[in-house]
Structures are given as C-alpha cells and as structure tokens.
C-alpha cells in the first residue's frame, strides 16, 4: 500500500514537473521566436480573474482593444508590440497593484516573473535587431496608454489585470 502511494506521489510530482515544460508554446514574432509558458500564465490568471474582473466597473473601457490585437499586427511588429505590452504590465500594472490577499499576490507575482522572462527573450531579439519597432506599434501602444490614463491608477491597474486573458489570447493567436 505504501509502495503504491509512493508511486502515485512520485507520478504526481513528475507530472507537475513535466507539465510546465510540456506546455511551452513557441511564439513566432516575426523573426524572433520565443518560448512562452502560456499555460502557466493562464493557470495563474484563472485564480485572479473573478476578483479582478468583478471589481472592474469601467466596463466601457477596454485597454487591449480588439483593433489593437497582436494577431492583427504585422508579424515583424509583433515582437516590438509584445515587448511594449510586457514592459507596460511589468512597470505600470504589477508595480502599482495593491493587493491584500496573499494568494493573489503570489499569482500576480508568478505572472510577473513569467512576463519578465519573456521580456528578457524579447530583449535578446531586440539586441540582434530582430525586434524592430515601427510607428504603427508606437501608435497602438499610445492608444492603450491613453485609455489607461483615463482612469485612476487603481481602477486602471485592476482593469489591466482583468484583461490579461485578452493578452494571452492574443499571444495564442499570434502563432
């Protein structure tokens, strides 16, 4: 019986360890190809989704609008656009999020770390001049920031967290 339990436990641990590696997704952002563990981000986001979205009362504002979507961006601009978005989340959203619940803080931190790793990969692409940023990307990014700045920092941050799934959907479809 103990052996069986031990075997089950070992299997579970192995599955957990293998799970992130197997759910890696390769993103082709123009010439830059990165591996993103979107599944982990989604898993973390599912824990904070209801809290963030239910408290977003500005339903008339959508930061990551459909017209700005990543998949509708030119492939060679996707790298730059994603890099700006990640920098936006890391420098603006996550840093200004005041969360009282420690489980949510952990989830947000995990997402932030994942974003950081992605941003590092994109930075590498940018260093080898595979992440060109053209005016179109800058324009889209400016539109997003203008929407964000319409709101106060807290509600804007809350909305931005609630729209993480939109970003993930973009990343999925960007492939």
């Amino acid at each position: 019986m103990k052996g069986t339990c031990f075997f089950c436990l070992l299997s579970t641990v192995l599955l957990i360890c293998l799970k992130p590696t197997t759910s890696l997704r390769r993103l082709h952002l123009g010439q830059c190809v990165i591996s993103v563990n979107i599944h982990e981000i989604r898993h973390s986001f599912r824990a904070i989704k209801d809290m963030t979205q239910s408290k977003d009362e500005h339903t008339d504002i959508r930061l990551l609008h459909q017209s700005y979507s990543l998949q509708d961006t030119e492939p060679m601009d996707r790298c730059c656009f994603l890099r700006h978005l990640l920098r936006f989340y890391l420098t603006t959203v996550f840093s200004h999020c005041k969360v009282s619940s420690s489980p949510i803080i952990r989830k947000v931190s995990r997402i932030a770390n994942t974003f950081l790793s992605i941003k590092k990969d994109l930075r590498l692409c940018h260093q080898v001049s595979m992440c060109h940023c053209r005016e179109d990307v800058k324009h889209k990014y400016g539109l997003i920031m203008s929407q964000y700045e319409k709101m106060d920092v807290h509600s804007a941050g809350l909305k931005a967290l609630g729209e993480l799934d939109i970003l993930l959907d973009w990343m999925d479809k960007a492939d």
């Binding site: 408290k55 999020c97 619940s101 106060d152 941050g157």
Partner: peptide, 8 residues
C-alpha cells in the same frame, strides 16, 4: 483588492 475602496 486592487480597487480603491474610497472610490467605490
């Protein structure tokens, strides 16, 4: 909670 209570 990220939403400011005062605003609400």
């Amino acid at each position: 909670m990220c939403v400011p209570r005062s605003w609400r």
